[in-house]
Every structure is written in C-alpha cells, then in structure tokens.
Design a protein around this nucleic acid. Structure first.
Lengths: 251, 251
DNA sequence: ACCTGTGAAGTCATTCACAGCC
DNA sequence: GGCTGTGAATGACTTCACAGGT
C-alpha cells in the first residue's frame, strides 16, 4: 500500500540537487526575458539579480548542468535557454489534465502560463454532470466517468487536482491507476501515492499561515530589546469543554 | 533601494527553524481534523502519518515549541491545536487584500480556506475601472486608486498579488509603501522588496516544470542499467519565427 | 581585468537511537 | 510496553574564496 511516503528514496535525480532543480525554472524565465530583448550574453551576477538569487548559488547550480559559460565573458543566453529547457524536459510537450473545474480549476484552465512552455491542457474534467459539455477556456468540460479513457487516449502523465479536499484522494487514485505519475495538488489535503509518483502541492492557506507567523514576530519586535517575548504565554486553558478555542475548519 | 534581497539577515525567528514553521500549518490541519472527530489524544506516529511526514521530524518540530506531549501517551489534540495556532499567530485575525481580480483573483476571493483560519478578506482591488463596484464573492471590487486608503483604514499587513506579471512590481511597491509587510505573490515575477518585508510566491508554471523534470527522468529509466542517459537530446522541435515561446536554439 | 567553475568551510535540516517518563 | 524529547550523527544546501581560463 505504500503509506503516504511521497518522499523519494534519496535525491534520485542523477546528480542534480532538488534545490537546484527548483530554481531552474526561475533562471529560465529570466533568460527568456533577456532573450526577448535580444541580449546575447549575461554574467552570473546579472542573471542572478534578475532571478532573485545570489550569484554564487547560480554558478553552483549551473555547474551541475555542465560548463556552459565562458570565463571572462558570461553565459550565452540562447544556449543556456536551450540547455535548461532540455534539462527540465521542456523540449517535449506535456499533455496535462485538470480535474475539478470550479473557480480555481477554471482559473487554471485560463492561465496562459500553461500553454507557453511545453504544457498543453489536454482535458478539463469535472464530477458535476451539469458541467459536462460546457466550454471553459474554449474547451468542453468532460465528465469524471471518462477520466481513465481521457488519460490513456492522450498519454497524459501529469495531472492537476483542483477539486474540493474531500474528493482529492479518490481522484488522485484514479489518476494514478490510469497512468499519471506526476500530480500537482491544489486541494488542501495530504495525498498518499505509491512510490514512483511525484506530488507537489500548492496551498494558499499554508502560505498565509507562514506569513502570519513572521508577521506576528515583526509585531513583537517593538518592546523587545533583550528577551524577545515568545508569542505570549497566554493561559494554557486546555480542555475547553467544547472548545471555545478556534472552532477552525479546514478549507 | 535595497535590491531584491528578500533574504532575511538570518533565520530571525526566535529559535524556530524555517522548515519547521512551514510544517506547522500541516500539523494544524491534521489536528483540526482529529479535533472534529473528537479524538482526544494522538501519538507522534499517527499524527505524522496524517500530516505526511515522519514521526522523528514531527517530534523534533514540536520540541522547538516546548514540551507539549506526555511520554507514554501522546499529545492532547485540543491543547496542541491551541499552541500551534498561537505560535502561528492565528489567534488574532489578519485582514488581507487581494489585488488583481481576474480569473485567479476571483477564485482566491471565493476560496473558503481564507476565512477559516483568522484570515479575512478586507478588500478586493483591481485596476480596471469597469470592475469597480462589481460584486465578487459578495464584496464590491474597489479601484486601485484607493489602495493606500484601503490598506490604512483596515490595518492590512498582508497583501495578495494576483495581477498580470507586468503590474506586480508596481502594485507591490504601493502595498509596501502603504504599510503592507507580507506579500503572497501569484504573479510570475520576482518581486523586489525592502528588508523587513516577506514575500512568498506561488507559481503554477514553476511547479509544473519541476514535475516535468522528474517525469523526464522516469521516462529515461528504462533502457538504463548502468549509465543513466542524460536528458536525451530530443529534436528541438519548435522555433516559432518570432516565438513568444522559447526560441530554443543551441549555440 | 573580468568572470566562471569548484573545492572547502560553514550553515541548516533530517534522521538515528536511546534515556527518561508514564 | 509505549511514547516523548533530544543529543549526536549524518546529509543537504549555501556561501566563501580563489585557481584557472579568456
């Protein structure tokens, strides 16, 4: 059954560190912008600034790909664009399905960034029969019943889940069973998948909570010159009979 | 000035490692689910499984917050929910503005997860005069002209940018000038902000590219027993005359 | 003179493994 | 016997600093 260990055994990625892989798209974007302005070469310092990282990191990152620069000169923009695209697998195109065409799913379907870089929305899928056939982003929504067929017919290996949390795990299992091996999950749930399947998640609520944490620290920074008061101890007040405490609710 | 060094000087966060902070929301969500099912206590093993991490990591994470568990027993669910909420600053509420009410902005405005945990959408702002006054998610869209006033009137310190890439930096600057110190950026651009301002980004296209990278590696895993063939040179295919797309080209 | 590529050092994060308590 | 809390070990990532090429 493979419990939810999304964790791949080791940084199995023929040499390139995961942290580096995560930055390649950033470099690629910056390079593409330079390319559009017909800039022929760029130094690690300039490119790093455009990508929002420091130059030592960038050079180290590129060193994992090979020696694509020229000492005393910098990097050839077009050449690097090509090398990074190839490394990321963007020279082929990737059919993608989006499952769950609510507000978010529809927004994703309309998002231009999809098409631009080798990703192609092959199908939009929703469980609501009333949605079936309706056009979203110029494409008819299809019903979940046909999920397996759609995946196979289109050779889809990347799926985007934009369903409510409750439906996500089940959709995930169907996608995986049908052959999908990479999933981008927008539902606020932990997905468990078998080994060999990659999951990445995008979670608004988590990001906000992280910001709130730092925001709170900033606020506590007045008053404190020596001992930064931790969050404020507040009465432990455990065991609320029926939780007068945050009756919070998951998304 | 302060160039785009988002980088805070050091992990200034009174002890709690950034990686731990990023997982607290995950634990909180799992705990909330348990709380709703009235589960009174939970072991590190169980909770870790629910949150999709391993138990050693979870125990270490909690150890930064204090000793909130009981040996031989586990953690009191309600108590932990309270402690983590407090640590994250979720016991107060955070007014948030969303700037850029296109497909994505509207989807975010409708997203339930916002309201649920101390975050409150204080205003929706868009640059298009035609949008002004239109209700989205039961709330009238306001014009960018009033951005500064809205921030101040509502004491907003967290802003969400969902504008097109081209407008993001400028919107960011106005938000910061008006007093926002935490930004969640959905626009595919690197934002530069002064020290003391936190930026987190959510970028669909980057996530997909990371998935594509791993996907490509998986594909290359047949055939290879000894020397894993690097990316595979694949025919560059493409080359739009004036490509809005990567006009990829080797040197 | 300038800029890349990279060992070496330093910092941060995860995992191990077990003492201590229930 | 079961489970937490945590030093110590290991591993990953970043930064330094400079040798080496143009």
């Amino acid at each position: 059954m493979a419990t939810g260990r999304t964790h791949r055994p080791a940084t199995r990625s023929r040499g390139i560190p995961e942290a580096t892989v995560a930055r390649l798209p950033l470099y690629l974007r910056a390079l593409t912008a330079l390319s559009e302005r017909s800039v022929p070469t760029v130094s690690s310092e300039e490119l790093a600034a455009a990508a929002g990282v420091n130059s030592a990191k960038l050079r180290k990152d590129f060193s994992y790909l090979g020696s694509y620069g020229t000492r005393g000169v910098g990097y050839d923009v077009e050449y690097l664009v090509y090398q990074i695209s190839r490394e990321l697998g963007l020279t082929q195109d990737w059919p993608v399905v989006i499952v769950g065409i609510g507000n978010l799913g529809a927004a994703l379907a309309n998002y231009g960034g999809f098409a631009s870089r080798g990703f192609r929305v092959a199908a939009l899928i929703d469980a609501d029969p009333a949605m079936a056939g309706k056009p979203v982003a110029g494409m008819p929504v299809q019903h979940t019943d046909d999920l397996e067929r759609i995946i196979e017919d289109n050779g889809v290996s990347i799926g985007v889940i934009a369903t409510p949390a409750g439906a996500a795990q089940q959709v995930c299992e169907r996608l995986v069973a049908a052959g999908v091996t990479s999933i981008l999950n927008f539902a606020p749930t932990v997905l468990s998948v078998p080994d060999g399947v990659d999951v990445r998640k995008v979670d608004l609520s988590i990001e906000l909570q992280i910001l709130a944490f730092h925001e709170q620290r900033k606020a506590g920074e007045e008053a404190a010159a020596d001992g930064v008061a931790p969050p404020v101890a507040a009465k432990p007040h455990r065991k609320g009979p029926d939780g007068d405490v945050p009756a919070v609710m998951p998304a």
